[in-house]
Amino acid sequence: MKLSSKEQAGIVILEPRGKIMGGPDASLLHDKLHECIDGNQNRIIIDLAQVDWMNSTGLGILISSYTTLRNNGGHLKLANVTDKIKSLLTITKLVSVFEAFDSVDEAVASFK
């Protein structure tokens, strides 16, 4: 997995690419999310457009970040959730937890 990030309207947008399966790739995403949180950047969007798939480790990272942000008055939102990940979120009932948008722009607008 590779990870890049940018800011739009004061909101951090993380752009992982590839597969999130555990090991070094998962640490990369986990560490970046918590770096943002530690830096008081508590409005974060994860753009999943380029993520082929993730497993339960990836879901665990999303939950950890969601909970930490919520406890600090922030929000984690998802954008461009692919069919494969949407299916996993549905199977695990996490679809009821995460706010998901069809585009990054829609996710950014939802913060206003």
Binding site: I63, S96, V97
Partner: peptide, 20 residues
């Protein structure tokens, strides 16, 4: 893992996903 009490746990979904 889909029980209400477990939904927000960070781990414990692996085998459930495999079975699904």
């Amino acid at each position: 893992p889909i029980a209400d009490d477990n939904l927000m746990k960070e781990v414990g979904r692996g085998i459930f996903i495999v079975k699904s």
